[in-house]
Structures are given as structure tokens and as C-alpha cells.
Design a protein around this nucleic acid. Structure first.
Length: 958
RNA sequence: GGGCCCGUGGCGGAACUGGCAUACGCAGCAGACUUAAAAUCUGCGGGUCGCAAGACCAUGUGGGUUCGAAUCCCACCGGGCCCACCA
């Protein structure tokens, strides 16, 4: 702001002073403190509205303007809902465990608890500067011992429960033990099992269990990663380091036990369809059949059954048949060979002595392949014949058994029946190795089965044996017929299969929640393999004090993981109990853990007795007064980025369902309504080497800053005289195009920032940041101010005169528009409506109070600081935060006369004014009577006249 | 390779259920007030032709349905996102 400006407009809107004043008042008065049921100031007569942001990760670099987009939106909703008479719960906290905090701490040589706290403080200051109406008394961080105590408690719930296959519900494992002891579980002789056997049986059912599984081991990070944290290129999402598959004993969560409910219950929530779809695809439910292929005579003999009966290993590994999963049992007669995954446990047993060498070579090569290689090789099919044969159960044909890496051990049974005629991959494989291709589905779309597989539906041919015939049946019937037959013969059964895998739940990190479990040690101090859970009363398990909390990175993929907690002294690691020694679990939980239930803790964040108080949980999650009642209950509005469509949202739903089944929470779903906001994008500039340069230092050929001309065609850009190319991408540190909200607040104020971000476009779309455009909404606020306050004299301009009809019409039309826009979260159009109204007020002679007050109330959720200040100038004492939203008087919406568009053959040719209540005949007559229209249709035959009441008339004449 | 979404002025976008295409804002142009600039106010603004009234053409391209299509259907072109040898 120049000096001259200050001189000539002494009482211009001083947003700095106003914003600071109101932010201070809100904090001092605790304007946005939210009462819980049971509190003295709780009003039970109001309905509730729980509006939540996906809480942020407190990074060291602070926020850029892309981060608060969703926070501003939820804040507007929260403020709006308060004026609509809701008790609004609107909290904020921090997801503060995890790799970046730890890495930041390592880089700066400071304990992560300290850097995390600094980052949180910095972020809170940034958020408060935007004027967000959070109840800061409920602030929490997942790293608080008071918080992760209860994260550990939820883990104990998981560890101590199982999913009952009878009804798919999570139940305490004690119930299962009681049934086992009573002999009520078929096929299990509990009394004959020793302690180890019993532990193994229960571990195989617990929702949290230890298992030796092939995991993504990242030596450079010194930790294992979830599948979701590994990129397509086989590298770590954080840091882009190579990741190797290797078997390690890790904690797993049995999310697959809930797969069908996690998929099915998506129907009940109000989420973007695209997000539901992504989650459904991730769960990957497919229906088909399991079919047993016995080994051919000569290949069955002498396989000793060495596996313990329980836990069961992959079907097929135990006895003779190879079990496959197929979605196309109707093509069973076309199965001409079988394929096992190279890691399949049956491979060694079936391979003939002659084929041992090539098979072992292939297995070794497959094991050495990274995901990158596998991707690159996806086009060409490789494999090796095992020398063994199996029997196709429908026609007793002997089919060769191959191994190939196009079959994955991790999906289905790790074995397939290959139907080259009707599966593209099998077709490619059969062509490569010259295996027979037998067509069993006929359809007009089949061209030549030698050239390409036909994978669509059709009618079965060549599909009959002595007992069953599919010939002539269309695909759906054929599927059912053959599945029924297989089931009757004991050769197979209908089967639902999921892509979803169990969730790898441990990390070799310091900065995560310690597990509340102990490993039993023998007299020599070696683990016995027995794991016991701590009691609730022993929580929290806090971190040991370490000097060196850094992960031990290595380049050697074979090096064993070294959890940092292993560096703690025995006084932390070793626990004595009942005369026995135990070692604490040295892994920690992954970052997702804390975010799986934080929305519940916000409801009752200081409760020391329970993870959340029951009454408060029922009120905020279940209330029958929930707005609209259109969704499954839970949080009324949850806003965050789509990047969490499958990870956080799936994990949290899983935990919630377990807590629901165990009776700890009252809704089956946590997030009744989800909204995914778009990204803020920005122009960025790269030099010849493709390296991004600081966007603020880039100028065009005329020396103008890039921000003033960005996105315009024909511009050339330079960074310190070096030519750079303009690109467009997500705003952030890596593209060096981040704009800080602090800068915008300093120059224009946070009301302007809020309005600008919302005015950019629809909330769910990605859209470009353009600093150049901010001035537009800032001018709007200045103009609003000048309508109320003379900027030369500071005189308040609002009168107590009765408003004229025209202003009242304008007001109520605007109320109708803005109310509708607010309900739809269409904030860009709500702002446009307010700008239009304000522009009209500029031209009006006077601003009557009856117009001014509702205008301020409508502006308040969007630009709360200026609204509060004007409200105070209007003579009100307190905050307007809880003032009722202006009501629309429909009487002012009806016009006496309306303008009707007259079209001839669908083209607009004129307009006529008719009384608003004119009937169709009258409107038609008025249109035909119009001079211009009459001349246009002169000499033509009017074939038809379409009248849309209140809108238009279309005359069809030729 | 499979699935999903999106293409509207120089730019961001509006038009929710088919019914005045381009609201509102930025940038631009002209004018007022200023010594001047900033700020502010007023006005103009899709394209082509025309002095004008107006006519014609315009919502990625080409078809279709309809009295009427940015909106619905089909094909193509361009961009984005998700999954990816999932049997």
C-alpha cells in the first residue's frame, strides 16, 4: 500500500487491525468452544453437525495456499451450520508420527518430539491466522501419550478379537476360547492341543497377528513398507528408494476378514462415486469358483503331509489336488494346462527329477526380479514345464502343469487353470509354448481363436461329459450349472475372492506407536515364540529415551532389519512378570494407526477413563437429529484429498467396524458423508536440465514478473537470464511454486484469502492459483466496507429508513441464491451472488439497516472478520457467530410480470413481457402478437407452439 | 491393457433437473476525477460481415435424438486420475 493511498482514504478498511481484533476476541471469549452432552452449557434441543478436516501432517516447511483450501471450506460450513441452529463440532489436530518427522529430526539432530512440537506450533499459528473457527480446546496430536495410549488400546481390541465366520462380525477372542473349551467348534479337539498349538490356533484368527510374509523391505529407509507405500516402479513413495520383496516376521491386521462388509457398506455412505469405486476396486471382489484338479496318476504318490493341520496353508499344498480360483468356471472344458506361481508350495513336490534344474533356475530368476523388471516383462510370457500333469475334473484330460510368473502367489490360490481360448494371458502363453487352444464358447464376435482369445460371454460348445452338459447354455447359466455340478461332486464350490490383502502393520521406526505386547523369553533369553498382550492398565507404552533414534539404513537388501527400539536398554526392553522374562515388541505401528480413530477422540479428547465417552460418542456420531438423515450416520461432513481414497479411508473404516462390533461405537460407518476437494495447481518453470526454478524469480521477455503474465500464450520466460519453460502442476515444494498463506494474509488479509480460494471455482475441482486475480475479491471487500463506512470521514452510512421494494427484492433473491449455494457447498457462486448484490448496493441511494444486516450475516461464514466488524458497527454487542441465518421471504421472489423469450424454430428472435400468472394461451398469443415475430412467421404455417411457463415460447413454423 | 472423469471467451469460471450460452471476477479498452500515478467511479467487451438495424457462425471434432442440446446417445481427438499379468 502506498503512502498516498493512506493520505487520501484515511478510513479505508483496515483489515490488519480488524482481523487481529476479532481473532483475539474469538480466542478470549472461546466463541467456538463446543459443549458436550453433560456440560452445563450444552443445548440438547439442537441437532448436531460434525464437520471434520483430514488432519494434517505437521511438516517443517509449513503450509502453502493449497493446504487450507479444504479447511476454509469446512470452516464456512461450520459457521453456516451454527447460524442454522446446529450444535457444530469442528475440531483440528495433527497426525504427527511418521517418517518425515523422524527424518526431519535426524537431519537436524533434534529429538522428533521437539521438532514435532515446533512444527505443530508453527502450523497452529498459520491456521489461526486464517480465522478458522475450530474448537481449539479439542486440539490433539497422535504423538501425545494421552492419545496413543488409546491407539494402543484399540490395538489390544484387535489383538483380542476375531471375526466369526458365521456372521462376519468381530467378537472377543475369549468367546471363541470358551466355545473351543466346550467342544463346540467342529473339527477341533482343543483339549488335545498343547499351549503352543492353542496359541497358533488363536493367532490364526486374531485380527492382529504375527506372520512371516513377503514384505516390501526398503534398506535405504531401514524399514518395511505397506503395498500402498510402494510405487509402481517398485520404489518407496517417500524418498524414492528401491524396495525389495523378502519374507519377514511382521505384525499383520486381518482386514481381509471384513472385505465383504467393507465393500458392501459403501452403498450406505454418501461419498463421491469415484471414491467409492476406487475403494471397491481396491477391495477387488470377484465371484467365481474354486476347482480342485487332482494330480495325474504317477504324480500323486508319497507326498508326506508335514504341515500342521492348523493354521491351514494355501489349498493345494496339503493334499493331492491343486486348487484354483476362476471367474469363468463355464470355460472349464477349455482348460488345457495349469500354471502355478513360482513360489507355490506344491512346485517342488510335483516337479519331476528331469525338470528340477530348469524349474529351480526359473524360480531363482523370478525371485530376483524386482517389480520394475516384472512390469517391463509383462508383455512377454515366460515359464517352465514341471514335468507333472493334473486331471481336468470335468473331462479327465491330463493337462501339463507349468510354472510362470504371470501367476501371482498373492492372489487366489496362486494357481490357475489355463483356458487359452478365453483368456488373453493364457492365450499369449499358449502361443509362446505351443500349448493346445480349445474353444468352448461360441459367439458371433469370435473371429479366429488361433489369433486371439475371446473373453466375452457367449454360448458353450464342446462342454459336456456323461453327467453334465453346458452345450447351448449362455454364459451365466453355464457358470451356475457347472458350479452346482462341481459342488455336488465335491470337486469345487462357488467362491468369492478379494484382491485386498491383510495389512502389514509394523515398521522399524522410532517415531511411531510402540506395540502393547510382550515376547516371552526362555531361560537363555531367547524368544519362545509366545506373544502376550499387555493389560489396558499398563498403557501407554511410551518410547524409551534414546540418543540415536535414526533408522539404520543400508544398501544391502539382505541385511536384517534393526528396529531403533532395539537400541533401548534392558530396563525398557525387558519386562518381568510371574517369574518369567519378556522382551517388548521392538517394531512400531505405521503412520496410518493414529489417523484410524482420531475423529472419535475429538469427540471427548480429555477423557482419561475411556477412548471416548459413550454418551458424547452417541450424540456426535449417531444423533437422530442428524442433518437430513440421508447417510449412514457418523461424521456429517468429512473433507480431504482423493489421495486417501483407498488407504486412510479403508483402514479407518476397518477399525471402526471392529469397534462397532465390539460395542464401543454406535455406527457401522465412521464417515457418513465424504467430500474430496480438488488440488490447487500452479505454474512452474524448468530450465533445460528439467530442474524447477524459483517461480517468484521468473520474468518474461519484457522483464515483467511471471505471475502477471502466466498462462498467456506466446510468452517467453527467463530465470536470471536463463530461458525456462512454463509448466503447470500441483503446487508444492518440489516444483518451487508454493505460495504461503502468510504472504497473502499480510498483503490482502485472510478474509481475502478465504474468499479468493473459494471463488477460484468448484471445490471438488483442481484449479490454478493466480496471484494476479486476488485483487478482485479484495476490491469486493473494500467496496462492501465503503457501502457501510465513508472512507474519508469514517461516518457510518447505514440508515434506519424502510427499504424500498426494489432493494427488498434484491435482498430476498440473493438470500434464496446464497442459501441454496451454501447448502450445495457451491461457494464460488455464493460469492458471485453477494458481489452482484453489493454492486447493486453501490448504486443505491442509501443502505437501510433491514438490507445491511442480512447482507452482513450472509457474508459472515465466508469473510467472518469484516462481517463481525460491520456487525459491531451496526450496534450489536456480541459475535454474530450464532445469529440466525437470514430467512427468505418468498413474496419478494414473485414478479408481477416476466420476460418471456420467443423462439422461432429454436432460435431466439425476441422477448415479450407477460403477467407472471398468464396462462399458456395468453403467453402464446402475446408471442404471436409481437411485431417482429409476426413478420418472421408471415407467410409460413405455424405447425406447433411450445410454451414453457415463465421461460419461453418456441414457434415451429415453416 | 482395464476402469473412471473432464474439454465453454485472452484467463478462472457460470448456466443444478435439456429451455435467453458466456453470470461473477481477472486481464484489456475507453471515459471521469487527478499536475501525474495509484485508488475510486462510469461504460464497452465471443467471432465474422455491416455505418447501422441486423444477419450468420460459435461450448474439442464429426454424427444422432429433440420443437429446442454446453447438457442426452454414438464415434473420434485431446487432457487428467486410479488400477495394472487379479485368473
Amino acid at each position: 500500500m502506498t503512502k498516498a493511498t493512506e493520505d487520501t482514504t484515511a478510513f479505508r478498511y483496515d483489515f490488519h487491525a480488524v482481523e487481529a481484533r476479532w481473532q483475539r476476541r474469538w480466542a478470549e471469549d472461546k466463541t467456538f468452544r463446543t459443549a458436550n452432552p453433560g456440560d452445563a452449557d450444552f443445548d440438547p434441543s439442537k441437532p448436531k453437525f460434525y464437520v471434520l478436516d483430514m488432519f494434517p501432517y505437521p511438516s517443517g516447511v509449513g503450509l502453502h495456499v493449497g493446504h487450507p483450501l479444504g479447511y476454509i471450506a469446512t470452516d464456512i460450513v461450520a459457521r453456516y451450520k451454527r447460524t442454522r441452529g446446529f450444535n457444530v463440532l469442528h475440531p483440528m489436530g495433527f497426525d504427527a508420527f511418521g517418517l518425515p518427522a523422524e527424518q526431519f529430526a535426524v537431519e537436524h539432530g533434534v529429538h522428533p518430539a521437539i521438532t514435532t512440537q515446533q512444527n505443530v506450533d508453527n502450523m497452529v499459528a498459520q491456521l489461526k491466522r486464517i480465522g478458522l473457527s475450530y474448537d481449539w480446546d479439542r486440539e490433539l496430536a497422535t504423538t501425545d501419550a494421552d492419545y496413543y495410549r488409546w491407539t494402543q488400546w484399540v490395538f489390544l481390541q484387535l489383538f483380542n478379537s476375531y471375526v466369526d465366520p458365521a456372521d462376519g462380525k468381530a467378537k472377543p477372542i475369549d468367546q471363541l476360547v470358551a466355545q473351543l473349551e466346550a467342544g463346540e467348534v467342529d473339527g477341533v479337539d482343543w483339549s488335545s492341543l498343547d499351549e503352543a498349538g492353542r496359541d497358533a490356533y488363536l493367532a490364526n484368527r486374531r485380527l492382529a497377528y504375527l506372520a512371516e510374509v513377503p514384505v516390501n523391505w526398503c534398506p535405504a529407509l531401514g524399514t518395511v513398507l505397506a503395498n500402498e507405500e510402494v510405487t509402481n516402479e517398485g520404489r518407496s513413495e517417500r524418498g524414492n528408494h528401491p524396495v525389495f520383496k523378502r519374507p519377514l516376521r511382521q505384525w499383520m491386521l486381518r482386514i481381509t476378514a471384513m472385505a465383504d462388509r467393507l465393500a458392501g457398506d459403501l452403498d450406505a455412505v454418501s461419498w463421491p462415486e469415484a471414491t467409492k469405486l476406487m475403494q471397491r476396486n481396491w477391495i477387488g471382489r470377484s465371484e467365481g469358483a474354486q476347482v480342485d484338479f487332482p494330480l495325474a496318476p504317477g504324480f500323486t504318490g508319497g507326498h508326506p503331509n508335514t504341515d500342521p493341520p492348523d493354521p491351514p496353508v494355501k489349498p493345494g499344498a496339503n493334499g493331492d489336488p491343486i486348487t484354483v480360483f476362476t471367474t469363468r468356471p463355464d470355460t472349464l472344458f477349455g482348460a488345457t494346462y495349469m500354471v502355478l506361481a513360482p513360489e507355490h508350495p506344491l512346485v517342488d513336490r510335483v516337479t519331476t527329477p528331469q525338470q528340477k534344474d530348469p524349474v529351480n533356475r526359473y524360480k531363482a530368476a523370478a525371485a530376483a526380479k524386482t517389480d520394475v523388471d516384472r512390469m517391463a516383462d509383462a508383455k512377454t510370457k515366460t515359464g517352465v514345464f514341471t514335468g507333472a500333469f493334473a486331471i481336468n475334473p470335468v473331462n479327465n484330460a491330463e493337462v501339463p502343469i507349468w510354472i510362470a510368473d504371470y501367476v501371482m502367489m498373492g492372489y487366489g490360490t496362486g494357481a490357475i487353470m489355463a483356458v487359452p481360448a478365453h483368456d488373453t494371458r493364457d492365450h499369449e502363453f499358449a502361443r509362446t509354448f505351443d500349448l493346445p487352444i480349445t474353444q468352448v464358447i461360441d459367439s458371433p464376435d469370435v473371429v479366429d481363436i488361433r489369433d486371439a482369445a475371446y473373453t466375452g460371454p457367449g454360448t458353450n460348445i464342446r462342454s459336456a461329459n456323461d453327467e453334465v452338459s453346458l452345450d447351448g447354455l449362455p454364459t451365466p447359466e453355464a457358470k451356475k450349472t457347472i458350479t452346482d455340478w462341481l459342488e455336488a461332486k465335491g470337486l469345487g464350490k462357488a467362491q468369492v475372492q478379494y484382491k485386498l490383502r491383510d495389512w502389514l502393520f509394523s515398521r522399524q521406526r522410532y517415531w511411531g506407536e510402540p506395540f502393547p505386547v510382550l515376547h516371552e523369553l526362555d531361560a537363555a533369553g531367547q524368544p519362545t515364540g509366545r506373544v502376550i498382550a499387555l493389560d489396558e492398565s499398563e498403557l501407554p507404552v511410551e518410547h524409551p529415551q534414546l540418543d540415536d533414534f535414526a533408522p539404520h539404513a543400508t544398501d544391502d537388501p539382505e541385511a536384517p532389519p534393526q528396529p531403533p527400539l532395539g537400541r533401548a536398554g534392558d530396563e525398557w526392553q525387558i519386562v518381568e512378570r510371574d517369574g518369567k522374562k519378556y522382551r517388548r515388541e521392538l517394531n512400531t505401528m505405521p503412520q496410518w494407526a493414529g489417523s484410524c480413530w482420531y475423529y472419535l477422540r475429538f469427540i471427548d479428547p480429555r477423557n482419561e477413563e475411556r477412548f471416548v465417552g459413550a454418551e458424547a460418542e452417541r450424540y456426535w456420531m449417531l444423533s437422530e437429529k442428524a442433518s437430513g438423515g440421508t447417510h449412514a450416520g457418523g461424521i456429517d461432513l468429512y473433507v480431504g484429498g482423493v489421495e486417501h481414497a483407498v488407504l486412510h479411508l479403508l483402514y479407518a473404516r476397518f477399525w471402526h467396524k471392529v469397534l462397532f462390533d465390539l460395542g464401543h461405537v454406535s455406527t457401522p460407518e465412521p464417515f457418513g458423508r465424504l467430500f474430496n476437494q480438488g488440488y490447487i495447481q500452479a505454474y512452474c518453470y524448468r530450465d533445460d536440465r528439467g530442474i524447477a526454478v524459483n517461480a517468484t524469480e521468473v520474468v518474461n521477455a519484457d522483464g515483467k514478473p511471471a505471475a502477471e503474465v502466466q498462462g498467456q500464450p506466446g510468452q517467453r520466460f527467463f530465470h536470471h537470464d536463463v530461458p525456462v519453460k512454463e509448466e503447470y502442476g500441483k503446487m508444492g515444494k518440489s516444483l518451487k511454486n508454493a505460495v504461503s498463506p502468510d504472504e497473502v494474509c499480510a498483503e490482502f488479509g485472510c478474509d481475502t484469502l478465504r474468499l479468493y480460494e473459494m471463488y477460484l471455482g468448484p471445490l471438488d475441482q483442481s484449479k490454478p492459483w493466480a496471484t494476479r486475480d486476488i485483487i478482485g475479491v479484495h476490491r469486493f471487500l473494500q467496496r462492501v466496507w465503503r457501502n457501510f463506512v465513508d472512507d474519508q470521514t469514517d461516518k457510518f452510512l447505514v440508515t434506519d429508513d424502510a427499504p424500498g421494494d426494489e432493494l427488498l427484492r434484491l435482498l430476498h433473491k440473493t438470500i434464496a441464491r446464497v442459501t441454496d449455494d451454501m447448502d450445495r457447498m457451491s461457494f464460488n457462486t455464493a460469492i458471485a451472488a453477494l458481489i452482484e448484490m453489493n454492486n447493486a448496493l453501490v448504486k443505491a441511494d442509501a443502505l437501510p439497516r433491514a438490507i445491511a444486516e442480512p447482507f452482513v450475516l450472509m457474508l459472515a461464514p465466508l469473510a467472518p472478520h469484516i462481517a463481525e466488524e460491520l456487525w459491531a458497527r451496526l450496534g450489536h454487542d456480541g459475535s454474530l457467530a450464532y445469529e440466525p441465518w437470514p430467512a427468505c421471504d418468498e413474496r419478494y421472489l414473485v414478479e408481477d410480470s416476466v420476460e418471456i423469450v420467443v423462439q422461432v424454430l429454436g432460435k431466439v428472435r425476441g422477448k415479450v413481457a407477460v403477467p407472471a400468472d398468464a396462462d399458456q394461451k395468453a403467453v402464446e398469443a402475446a408471442a404471436l402478437a409481437d411485431e417482429k415475430i409476426a413478420s418472421l412467421i408471415a407467410g409460413k404455417t405455424v405447425r406447433k407452439v411450445i410454451v414453457v411457463p415463465g421461460k419461453l415460447v418456441n414457434i415451429v413454423a415453416n
